[in-house]
């Protein structure tokens, strides 16, 4: 099968801006799903609101484009009610961690088998370039004309602390790593979080003078390094990439099956 088999071609070209990293993330995800030879019938994509969320319309999966920040809560209902389905939940940084922050940590705590992808472009793009909880301090945005004073979350640390059993980070530049990580995340039994640094040349890049899409991608290349690499050892200020957590922990739907077993036994007794 080719990656085109997994998209709804009639809705292309997609609505994202030229050079948007979200398109590359879609591309990587399609390659991951294709390489895993997954059956489209088993795939459900749930998304929230924002640029990122439009991804669910383009994939030929069962797709659920929901409300802002709540994609994981909807996905929890889909997954628990039909555990044989594979849930992929791409979210923007504001979607996942501002309005959706509570659902994010609780899905991680439950370790429900969902693959959460944080498409982190550090900005609210759809509404025109307001700062997000991942912008970090000292950044320009339409709601931060004097630059931001808010600190950013570290998605990897947050997800790890909340109990996600698979946590990884890649970038839109490092496509081969992204594909490999996404394959492992999808196959992982439990809640997996993959943060993928993305670029928004239209808003974030323009406001913060980071150049065009290619220059922003080069920035991702220059400011990140693989876990365990010499580059990271030499310069700990680089953002680490790779798989940070990969634990075998009881999964929520399986645990609930045991609840059902106990309840049914109790009834018979």
């Amino acid at each position: 099968m080719s990656v085109k088999e997994y998209i709804r071609e009639r809705y292309f070209p997609h609505m994202w801006c030229p050079g948007c990293g979200h398109g590359t993330i879609l591309n990587s995800l399609l390659h991951a799903v294709d390489q895993l030879q997954l059956d489209k019938k088993d795939l459900v994509m749930t998304s929230g609101i924002g640029c990122s969320a439009r991804i669910s319309g383009y994939v030929d999966f069962h797709s659920l484009h929901t409300i802002h920040g709540r994609a994981l809560a909807f996905a929890t209902g889909v997954k628990l009610s039909k555990p044989e389905l594979k849930l992929i939940v791409p979210m923007g940084d504001g979607d996942a961690l501002a309005i959706g922050g509570n659902h994010f940590i609780h899905a991680a705590r439950r370790n429900i088998d969902i693959t959460a992808i944080v498409m982190n472009n550090r900005i609210y793009g759809m509404t025109g370039g307001q700062f997000s909880p991942l912008s970090g301090a000292g950044k320009k945005a339409t709601t931060a004309p004097y630059s931001t004073i808010d600190s950013a979350f570290d998605v990897v640390k947050l997800a790890t602390a909340a109990g996600a059993s698979f946590v990884a980070r890649s970038t839109a530049y490092h496509v081969l790593e992204t594909i490999d990580i996404l394959k492992k995340a999808i196959n992982h039994k439990g809640f997996s979080v993959v943060e993928i640094l993305s670029q928004c040349p239209t808003h974030y890049g323009r406001k913060n003078k980071e150049g065009n899409a290619s220059q922003m991608l080069k920035f991702q290349k220059d400011t990140t390094a693989k876990i365990g690499s010499k580059a990271l050892e030499k310069n700990p200020l680089l953002i680490p990439r790779g798989i940070f957590v990969d634990n075998d922990v009881p999964e929520y739907c399986q645990a609930y099956d045991e609840v059902i077993e106990r309840a049914m036994k109790g009834r018979k007794a």
């Binding site: 749930t46 069962h62 659920l64 929901t66 409300i67 709540r70 809560a73 909807f74 996905a75 929890t76 209902g77 889909v78 997954k79 628990l80 009610s81 039909k82 389905l85 509570n102 659902h103 609780h106 609930y256």
Partner: peptide
């Protein structure tokens, strides 16, 4: 399922309705 808040509960039942 006991969800993390009221909003999530409403969202979860919608998701579960879609699986039939």
């Amino acid at each position: 399922i006991q969800m993390e808040d009221e909003i999530a509960s409403m969202c979860a039942i919608i998701g579960a309705s879609l699986t039939g």
